[in-house]
Lab assay of single mutants.
Amino acid sequence: MSIQHFRVALIPFFAAFCLPVFAHPETLVKVKDAEDQLGARVGYIELDLNSGKILESFRPEERFPMMSTFKVLLCGAVLSRVDAGQEQLGRRIHYSQNDLVKYSPVTEKHLTDGMTVRELCSAAITMSDNTAANLLLTTIGGPKELTAFLHNMGDHVTRLDRWEPELNEAIPNDERDTTMPAAMATTLRKLLTGELLTLASRQQLIDWMEADKVAGPLLRSALPAGWFIADKSGASERGSRGIIAALGPDGKPSRIVVIYTTGSQATMDERNRQIAEIGASLIKHW
């Protein structure tokens, strides 16, 4: 058993032996400061991975655009179909130039040979490839079927209504393609630790998130040596930015963190910096 498999397999085991986890309101002070700095709403939640207890939250039940963070949920739905014998990670999917949409750094290189379902999930999560996400959405029946999958998990909040890139429109008060921090954190925890997916599929999902290559300026920039993080970021119109993550010290995840912001006029660099500073406060007061 690899170190990674050891880590995921023991998450339920550690729940019975973990020390009490204490919240630190200092992080919420930073979240509120980020709102002031960005001139935008910020949603935040910090969840204990083992118990599911909410440690801190700010606007946990307000809607925010999901942006590309939905791609983790999408690959969770794909893995659920794999577990049920309805899909194979090794199945190759062929597509054409007409299928390519904006920001497809991986799929645009494989027009001649296509990509496997496994490769598409990797591209969608680690590189946020939009065509990969659309191709995967097609395999499960489209955005409405992803919403149905989430409903069956008990998440009646999170919804996907459109495809890439239209889902990134982020119109104020538009509930399409949105979630709430509390709903996203709970759903992510179920995917990573619950019985919905097999152990192998849970491991695969967290491996893809751990290999994320496009979230460096966010929480990863504040991470001390030896800490673990598996994450997925997102960005969209109207100053929207977000990240969902499982992270913790000693090389294993122990908390879920979800951060969303929307409605800012700030630059992408400034949005990144504010999220990184929230992460730094979280780690300092861990």
Rank of each mutant, 00 (worst) to 15 (best):
His5Cys: 13
Phe6Gly: 08
Arg7Tyr: 11
Phe14Trp: 11
Ala16Ser: 15
Leu19Ser: 15
Val29Ala: 15
Ala34Gly: 05
Asp36Ser: 14
Asp36Asn: 11
Leu38Pro: 07
Val42Gly: 12
Gly43Cys: 02
Leu49Arg: 02
Phe58Ser: 08
Phe58Val: 06
Glu61Cys: 12
Glu61Asn: 14
Met66Phe: 06
Met67Arg: 00
Val72Ser: 04
Leu73Met: 07
Leu74Ser: 00
Leu74Ile: 04
Leu79Tyr: 13
Ser80Arg: 12
Val82Tyr: 06
Gly85Asp: 11
Gln86Thr: 14
Glu87Gly: 03
Glu87Lys: 01
Leu89His: 04
Leu89Trp: 05
Gly90Glu: 13
Arg91Cys: 02
Arg91Met: 04
Ile93Tyr: 04
Tyr103Ile: 05
Ser104Cys: 05
Lys109Arg: 12
His110Leu: 07
Arg118Gln: 13
Leu120Ser: 02
Ile125Leu: 13
Thr126Ile: 08
Ser128Gly: 00
Thr131Ala: 09
Asn134Ser: 01
Leu135Thr: 05
Leu135Trp: 00
Leu137Ala: 01
Leu137Trp: 00
Ile140Val: 11
Gly142Arg: 00
Gly142Glu: 02
Lys144Ser: 13
His151Asn: 13
Asn152Asp: 14
Asp155Ile: 12
Asp155Gly: 02
His156Cys: 12
His156Arg: 10
Thr158Asp: 00
Arg159Gln: 07
Leu160Cys: 13
Leu160Met: 08
Trp163Asp: 05
Glu166Gln: 10
Leu167Phe: 00
Asn168Val: 00
Asn168Lys: 02
Asn168His: 03
Ile171Val: 13
Pro172Cys: 09
Pro172Arg: 09
Asp174Gln: 05
Asp177Leu: 01
Thr179Met: 00
Met180Gly: 09
Pro181Val: 05
Pro181Phe: 00
Ala182Asn: 10
Ala183Met: 09
Thr187His: 06
Arg189Ala: 09
Arg189Val: 07
Lys190Gln: 03
Gly194Leu: 08
Leu196Glu: 09
Leu197Tyr: 03
Thr198Cys: 11
Thr198Ser: 13
Leu199Val: 13
Arg202Tyr: 03
Asp207Ala: 14
Asp207His: 14
Trp208Cys: 03
Met209Ser: 00
Ala211Pro: 03
Asp212Lys: 03
Lys213Gln: 14
Val214Thr: 12
Ala215Ile: 02
Ala215Val: 03
Gly216Lys: 08
Leu218Arg: 01
Ser221Ala: 15
Ala222Lys: 15
Ala222Gln: 13
Pro224Ala: 04
Phe228Ile: 05
Phe228Thr: 04
Phe228Ala: 06
Ile229Asp: 00
Ala230Gly: 08
Asp231Ala: 06
Asp231His: 05
Lys232Leu: 03
Glu237Gly: 05
Arg238Glu: 14
Ser240Trp: 02
Ser240Asn: 11
Gly242Asp: 02
Ile243Gln: 02
Ile244Trp: 00
Ala246Val: 14
Leu247Ser: 02
Gly248Val: 03
Pro249Leu: 03
Pro249Gln: 06
Asp250Pro: 06
Asp250His: 13
Gly251Gln: 08
Lys252Ser: 10
Lys252Tyr: 11
Pro253Asp: 04
Arg255Val: 03
Ile256Gly: 03
Val257Ala: 04
Tyr260Ser: 02
Gln265Ser: 14
Gln265Asp: 13
Gln265Ala: 14
Gln265Gly: 14
Ala266Val: 10
Ala266His: 07
Ala266Gln: 08
Thr267Gln: 08
Met268Leu: 11
Asp269Phe: 10
Glu270Gly: 06
Asn272Ser: 06
Asn272Lys: 00
Arg273Lys: 14
Gln274His: 12
Ile278Phe: 04
Ala280Thr: 15
Ser281Gln: 15
Leu282Ser: 03
Leu282Glu: 02
Lys284Asn: 12
His285Phe: 11
